Simulated scan of single mutants.
Amino acid sequence: MLGSLSSDLSKQGVRTPAKGNCAACGKPIVGQMVTALARTWHPEHFTCDHCKQELGNKNFFERDNKPYCEEDYHNLFSPKCAYCSKPILDMVTALARTWHPEHFTCDHCKQELGNKNFFERDNKPYCEEDYHNLFSPKCAYCSKPILDNYIMPSRAQWHPHCFVCIVSDAASQNGGSFFDHEGMPYCETHYHAKRGSLCAGCGKPITGRCITAMYRKFHPEHFVCAFCLKQLNKGTFKEQNDKPYCTVASRSCLADAWQRRRRERLDVW
């Protein structure tokens, strides 16, 4: 239309000076024109270099001195989301990849991470809570994740405040000493109770010599006659009513027992 108008005006003696040559077709521009990328264009020739859609007054993007509509520019050149593979306009950069903010989520709970702290495992992001629940070492006592200091006396790990006797919940005594039984910590008393090495006389642990008698263990000095309290030796005592007696005391005890039974019989008669 503009070309016909220019021709008609020229025939009538009216000068229609050209405004430059079109960057697309190379022909002179008379009438309306588009100025972009430091060049001039016929409006119908200023099109997206990819889809050839007229750009007109639309937003456009430039790449290698060529115009592109917004959709094609992002599809062709914008970074792609590591989750959905679609172009990213507003993005998060993490793990050497780019993401839509709504797609950068914890791999376990799917919560958006945004600007929160996150942890990486096998090139996947995790929120702090899920990372520790899934991958941090667990305390052998409370089974909760260990995030800071820990005690590792054997194969297991413990929170310092959880490293207590497994029976009594008492903290380690004697400067932090403890006794291990089947991978679990015990205070001295419960350790020996578990192993059957408490003295049947005083109830305290036996750490040295001991006497085993009547299916129990004794400190040598606590294995005494139940009647005269004389110290006994294994093999030189008599057992009566689950109590040890020396030979002399056992005869006396038997006599006393016979007299008691005799009196009981007389009382009955």
Rank of each mutant, 00 (worst) to 15 (best):
I166N: 11
L266K: 13
M91F: 02
H103K: 05
L55R: 03
E128H: 05
S168F: 10
C228N: 06
H50L: 02
F227D: 12
W41P: 07
R209V: 12
V224C: 14
A170K: 15
T40C: 04
K11M: 14
T93F: 02
G203A: 09
S252T: 14
K194F: 10
D90H: 04
T212N: 05
D49F: 12
I146N: 01
R39M: 10
N75R: 02
G26C: 01
T247F: 01
C142E: 06
Y150R: 00
C51Y: 07
Y141A: 14
P244I: 03
G201F: 08
L266C: 05
S250Y: 13
P28D: 03
R262S: 10
C202F: 06
F118H: 03
D169W: 08
C69D: 15
D130S: 03
H222D: 14
M184N: 14
F237W: 08
N21M: 06
A255W: 08
D267F: 06
G175W: 06
H42Q: 01
W41F: 05
Y215T: 12
G176T: 10
I151G: 01
W99Q: 02
V268T: 10
P125H: 01
V34Q: 01
P67M: 08
D90I: 04
K19V: 06
E221R: 11
D64R: 13
A18S: 15
A170L: 13
L254V: 08
S252M: 14
P185Q: 09
P220W: 06
F178G: 04
M214D: 09
P79K: 06
T105N: 11
C81I: 06
K66L: 13
C48G: 01
A170C: 11
C165R: 06
I206D: 07
L147Y: 00
C246S: 03
Y191G: 07
K204C: 09
H100E: 01
H42P: 02
F237H: 14
E264M: 07
Q157A: 15
H222C: 15
R261E: 15
Y141D: 08
C246V: 01
D8S: 12
C109Q: 07
N233R: 12
